[in-house]
Design a protein around this nucleic acid. Structure first.
Lengths: 195, 195
DNA sequence: GACGCTGAGACACTTTCCGTCTTATTGTCT
DNA sequence: AGACAATAAGACGGAAAGTGTCTCAGCGTC
């Protein structure tokens, strides 16, 4: 990724934060990035759609990169999963950009977190998290596990439950120990015995 | 002012806060107000310009109404003026709407505080503040005083000075006692003796 | 000097927005 | 019930803004 591309994506993000996707024009982004429209179209052929898509991809990459950094030192599977969902949930809650988008354009943003965007999110989560999980499960199981957890994190983020708070380590640990680990870890000798 | 007019002006303000004037359309305002475009044009014939103008007028009215409420119990002229400039300055600084506008549309907003809008501001200040000042000065002097103070408050708000902080009561009192009162109150027996 | 990258801007096309208008509906008053 | 005022919905043409492509000129590097 060239510095110019990065500048443009940063500008896109800034514009979206300020005005919401619906109000942002290509000229806005170009001006914010200090770049001509021609350059922008050269770097992102396809224009607006491609540009905003690239922005979303980069946001996901950033999100999971940051998430990955919080996973070091998690030895057993339970600890790994707990850290993952807790940090992911807290990061989502702390994301002011996301909050602004949800407030100003609920429809588009929700779509990006569910119907339209969820496959992409799951794919990215798989890419980043499955390697960590594979230390404890085979690839197939790891993929299914990450798929499931990603959906759960998003669901509990969008609509909090009185029973589970995935932003709280204790609650997340109980939840994972009770509903997740037993189904993915047929051998009960390690952590399945909990609860 | 009918309730519908108020709803529309509230909606206008809300839209401006969210997107900045440049990005707001009449449809946005109508939708936000839960009113059809036809109704909006009936209430504000002339459309966008008239609508935004009405919003600015109402903001000024609100501003000075609130300011007026903080002036009760100021007996002597010095106290009255100090309270006025201190509250006005603090209100300007605390106005998140204004801050957002200054950030997103510096040109328009500054124009509204200086070249374009200042006459209106002075007129409104005169309307609200002069009656209070007239208890201590004749109408002519009161008008000139309010005109002067309004300009000073705005100037020191836009470009703070190391010498004067009109948001601080002590500093404001010194400033007014030193530079304002002597020129408007030739009789030095009451407060002019200070400093 | 050839090369690649960029900014500026012309261009045709599309979309959005504006302001005005008509029509149907609703609720109110007599 | 019927007259009436106010409104929502939306059609309409013209104006404005935005889009995506293109050309060309400038500028630094090799």
């Amino acid at each position: 990724m060239t510095p110019t591309e990065r500048r443009i994506l940063d500008a896109t993000r800034a514009c979206c934060e300020r005005w919401g996707i619906a109000k942002v024009t290509v000229d806005d982004v170009a001006a914010e990035a200090g770049v001509s429209r021609a350059t922008l179209y050269r770097m992102f052929p396809g224009g607006k759609d491609v540009l905003f898509d690239a922005m979303r991809v980069r946001e996901l990459e950033d999100f999971f990169t940051q998430l990955g950094e919080h996973l070091d030192g998690a030895d057993d599977l339970e600890e790994l999963l707990v850290r993952t969902v807790v940090h992911a949930t807290r990061a989502l809650r702390a994301d002011s950009h996301l909050a602004a988008m949800l407030a100003s354009e609920p429809g588009d943003t929700l779509s990006e977190l569910t119907v339209q965007g969820l496959p992409r999110i799951v794919r990215m989560a798989t890419l980043f998290i499955v390697p960590e999980v594979e230390a404890h499960l085979d690839r197939e199981a790891a993929s299914r596990l990450v798929d499931l957890l990603a959906r759960l994190v998003i669901s509990y983020f969008l609509a909090p439950s009185p029973y589970v708070d995935l932003g709280d380590a204790g609650s997340a640990r109980r939840f994972i120990g009770l509903h997740i680990l037993p189904t993915f870890q047929p051998d009960p000798s390690t952590t399945g015995a909990r609860q």
